[in-house]
């Protein structure tokens, strides 16, 4: 009798999980990813305009005001992208009647935390030690791992994007350390635009 009850409860849980997972597919960011990618490309153009170098370290040799400007542009880009993601995700979840607190969505968000926190802590250490050169590739790796982890709880698209970021981060760190501005533009800009377009296409297909 206990086994039968366990099976019935397990069926109910399974139904809920599959229904949530099915709806979560619709919450993958499309326009948020595209606009976020475009913001990164704009930030890259502004940085290039000031440094005329693909090496991010060159920012350090700018006058203090310009240095502050570049730092603000990149911080603002990151903040605007995250804010945009939340606003659009909230709007989409209301439209579809899917909670952002649904288990797969919640788990995906939580799975991103440790990798991003680790990247943040290492960045702080690198900033204190004045090792600025590896910070962009470190964030490609950290963000890639975060996306890969999130994909384990949602669908395979974020997982593949995460793998792409990890490979690009490794390449940026060891093979192309002097052109990290271009690689940041390619990954945080180009990959996000391509991902958003792919998701958008999938939703409309």
């Amino acid at each position: 009798m206990q086994r039968e009850e366990a099976r019935l409860l397990s069926d109910l849980k399974y139904i809920r999980d599959v229904m949530e997972l099915s709806a979560t597919h619709k919450l993958l960011p499309d326009w948020a990813a595209i606009v976020g990618g475009l913001l990164v490309l704009a930030a890259t153009a502004l940085t290039w305009n000031l440094t005329r170098s693909a090496d991010v370290v060159q920012v350090l040799f700018l006058p203090p005001l310009q240095k502050l400007f570049v730092a603000s542009v990149w911080t603002g880009t990151a903040a605007a992208s995250v804010l945009l993601y939340w606003v659009l995700a909230l709007r989409e979840s209301r439209r579809l009647g899917v909670s952002l607190q649904a288990r797969p969505t919640r788990m995906a968000r939580q799975a991103m935390g440790p990798a991003l926190l680790t990247a943040g802590v290492i960045t702080l250490r690198l900033l204190l030690d004045r090792h600025y050169g590896v910070i962009p590739s470190l964030w490609m790796l950290g963000y890639g791992v975060a996306l890969y982890n999130a994909g384990l709880f949602s669908s395979e698209e974020p997982r593949l994007l995460g793998l792409l970021f990890i490979v690009t981060g490794i390449a940026a760190m060891f093979v192309f350390p002097d052109v990290d501005l271009w690689i940041a533009a390619l990954s945080f800009g180009g990959y996000h635009i391509a991902f958003g377009a792919y998701v958008l296409h999938g939703k409309r297909a």
């Binding site: 069926d11 399974y14 599959v18 229904m19 949530e20 099915s22 709806a23 619709k26």
Partner: peptide, 15 residues
């Protein structure tokens, strides 16, 4: 009631 068919029905009920 079969697990895969239950999954199909649940997913399609949500989408």
């Amino acid at each position: 009631h079969e697990r895969v068919r239950l999954g199909i029905m649940s997913a399609l009920a949500a989408e």
